[in-house]
Write a protein that binds this DNA or RNA. Structure first.
Length: 683
DNA sequence: CTGTTGAAATTTTTT
DNA sequence: ATTTCAACAG
């Protein structure tokens, strides 16, 4: 490493398109970056280039999809800047839209009449509050069923994030709820009032308030002037509201860089719209577009397959990815007998690749829905293969962790009704009714917990009540260190938890873990905020540095695999109904999104790609009731030429099965019966 | 008003 | 399999 590299030395490592993008002038600039084309490297160089050119780091805003992505990019940009002996990126504003919104809103809270101590609700908290309102309005008290809280929340969220009228959202996305339009309006009105009264913002509010902040004639210009450059990663997965925010940050597009790949837009269910990236050139009349097409990730045979898969999409920026890596064979399409057979195939090949020198952590199994990996997880455990699962329910979203956090949150913000309604009914003899009364009393006393000392608890809670009130009063004294606070809460809560839930042991460990890592946070508010805005995947993830020599296989939903890559990738359950999901085949555009999702999964692979699907799905664990699976419609016949086809070996009979003692051939009485049943059950 | 039980409906992806 | 709601006993 030379002591005095020049910026040109660093840029020399980029290809011409990447370099053009990295060193482009004021913008607006759209970088259309196909999968594996060095998008991150380009963005990293652009940040470094801007700073090296003299842009003040604190006047750069970098918006990414996860905080981890932001941290990694800034780290890499720092590496480049160090070589130039240039100051680093510490003062760059970075993070997700939501995280940046919370920082900006905290700073400008007073100007728009927002209490600076506002707390942030995650999706389930918000649903709970919506449910409180729903019960109060007695909307469920009709002969026809009112949509449940999750559905109501989705409708509300879509209105806000897609900036669409309720009627339109109902017609286009929730046609079965159309008859409830009037009730939903009342519900949402009351819901908004309740959030205001509680001093909370939810995910939707963070964006809504940021947008409003920018629209404000007083504060808006101030916030806008704060940034010279705004870079947005994964632009294909932003929604209309986020596009509005970007537009308000820089109406003429000066300093704006958007990076994305329309072919990888997979968050429409969260109101993201591929229109943001497709219409970027229309939105900013003078926009320049740089397209990155050279793929550095995958072998040419894999790319040929993925190119053909995405060629089935209707509207997109046409890219034809190519690679210089002509090594390697075609991807493999694996026909497995059933789910167990599929799991067995994956286990065997994972081990084979490890034998061949590919660490577990350089291999990944990808699937559409979190529960698709359950059987595989059992097989992996049996084969002693360590794995880490990404996506699905995160550990901070589990009931016991949410309970624990609710104590802290209520102390932080006594107006937070959801937290109160969560922890009060944990006490024996206190249900929703009394909890609501108590929260009302608390509001009237201005959030002073001592008002609860006057209350006469029911006999069941007589002993615990004074301790409970004392606990919350203690937590209000901010002098206490955070780990100590968590310790007090845990001591009080753990016994309650044990009576309330099963699987007590692992839950207790989670609570201990949480206490251990509490010292990493600056303060209580910071901990609550970070945990809701960037929920860690596991306690281990929370703890920060996983042990280096820890080798584990990656299991991940396709959504959580975004932006990542592995040497060996197994896509499992590539059967119609799973990919595309049965739940997303109503609308043609939903199917398009599922196609892109499949494309994202395939393009994660560097050297080896296996696409597996089981021929049969059993309805229950016992008996032979099963249905037939169809290969995913995204691999029609004309595409099969890109794949090598493989049928798994007949699975060896499970030693627990009584058949194993008898016949040794692969034909067993059971398999014959199965086949016979196909005659009338099959399609 | 709480806590339990049973029946009925719904079943993905996540900041 | 999980969540929601109504019915009922304490």
């Amino acid at each position: 490493m030379t002591a005095s590299a020049s910026i040109d030395d660093l840029l020399a490592k980029l290809n011409p398109q990447q370099r053009e993008a990295a060193t482009f002038g004021d913008g607006p600039l759209l970088i259309v970056a196909g999968a594996g084309t060095g998008k991150t490297a380009t963005l990293v160089h652009r940040v470094a280039w801007l700073i090296a050119r003299g842009v003040d780091p604190s006047r750069i805003l970098l918006l990414t999809f996860t905080r981890r992505a932001a941290a990694e990019m800034l780290h890499r940009a720092d590496g480049l800047l160090q070589q130039l002996h240039h100051r680093g990126t510490t003062r760059v504003w970075s993070g997700t839209y939501h995280a940046v919104a919370s920082r900006l809103l905290r700073r400008h809270a007073k100007a728009i009449g927002l209490p600076p101590e506002f707390t942030v609700h995650d999706r389930t908290d918000s649903e709970d509050l919506l449910n409180v309102v729903r019960t109060e309005l007695e909307l469920a008290k009709t002969d026809k069923r009112f949509p449940k809280k999750g559905t109501c929340m989705s409708i509300y969220s879509r209105c806000v994030n897609a900036r669409q009228k309720l009627e339109r959202v109902l017609t286009e996305s929730f046609p079965w709820c159309r008859e409830w339009a009037e009730e939903l309006k009342r519900l949402f009105d009351a819901f908004v009032d309740r959030k205001e009264a509680a001093g909370v913002l939810d995910y939707d509010d963070l964006l809504l308030y940021w947008d409003a902040l920018l629209a404000d004639p007083e504060v808006g210009p101030e916030v806008r002037k704060q940034f010279d450059c705004v870079l947005v990663d994964e632009y294909q997965d932003t929604n209309a509201l986020q596009a509005d925010i970007l537009f308000k940050l820089s109406p003429d597009g000066k300093g704006v860089t958007a990076v994305g790949d329309d072919a990888q837009s997979i968050y429409a269910f969260r109101a993201a719209t591929v229109r943001n990236i497709l219409d970027f050139p229309k939105h900013y009349a003078n926009a320049a577009i740089v397209t990155l097409e050279q793929n550095y990730r995958s072998t040419q045979p894999i790319l040929e397959a993925t190119n053909q898969v995405i060629a089935q999409a209707k509207e997109r920026f046409t890219k034809n990815l190519w690679s210089q890596r002509s090594d390697g064979g075609r991807p493999v399409l694996v026909h497995a007998e059933d789910e167990a057979d599929q799991a067995e195939f994956v286990v065997r090949h994972v081990l084979e690749h490890r034998e061949a020198g590919v660490d577990l952590r350089r291999q990944a199994v990808l699937f559409r829905a979190s529960h698709h990996s359950i059987l595989l997880e059992a097989e992996l455990a049996r084969a002693n293969i360590p794995f880490q699962k990404f996506g699905g329910l995160k550990f901070v979203e589990t009931a016991h962790v949410k309970d624990l956090m609710a104590y802290l949150r209520l102390a932080e913000n006594p107006r937070d009704v959801v937290s109160g309604m969560r922890i009060l009914p944990l006490l024996p003899g206190i249900g929703p009714g009394k909890a609501q009364q108590l929260m009302l009393t608390l509001q009237q006393s201005g959030g002073d917990f001592s008002c609860w000392n006057q209350w006469r608890p029911p006999t069941g809670a007589a002993e615990l009540w004074p301790k409970f009130v004392a606990l919350l009063q203690g937590l209000t004294r901010t002098s206490e260190e955070l780990p100590a606070q968590l310790h007090r809460v845990r001591k009080f809560y753990a016994p309650l938890m044990e009576t309330k839930y099963d699987h007590v042991e692992p839950r207790l460990r989670d609570l201990e873990q949480l206490e251990l890592i509490a010292s990493r946070y600056r303060n209580r508010r910071q901990m609550l905020l970070e945990i809701t805005l960037d929920p860690p995947n596991s306690t281990q993830d929370l703890a920060g540095d996983p042990v280096l020599d820890d080798d584990y296989l990656v299991l991940s939903t396709i959504h959580s695999a975004k932006g990542l890559e592995w040497d060996v990738v197994y896509v499992i359950h590539a059967a119609d109904g799973n990919i595309p999901s049965d739940m997303a085949t109503k609308h043609p555009q939903e199917i398009e999104e599922e196609l892109r999702l499949f494309y994202v999964a395939l393009t994660r692979a560097k050297n080896h790609l296996y696409v597996c699907y089981p021929l049969r799905y059993y309805q229950s664990r016992f008996g032979d009731q099963h249905s037939y699976a169809q290969r995913t419609r995204f691999l029609p016949n004309h595409l099969l030429a890109c794949f090598e086809q493989q049928v798994t070996d007949p699975r060896q009979a499970d030693p627990d099965d009584d058949e194993s003692a008898g016949p040794t051939s692969s034909t067993t009485s059971r398999s014959i019966r199965r086949k016979a049943k196909d005659l009338w059950n099959g399609i």
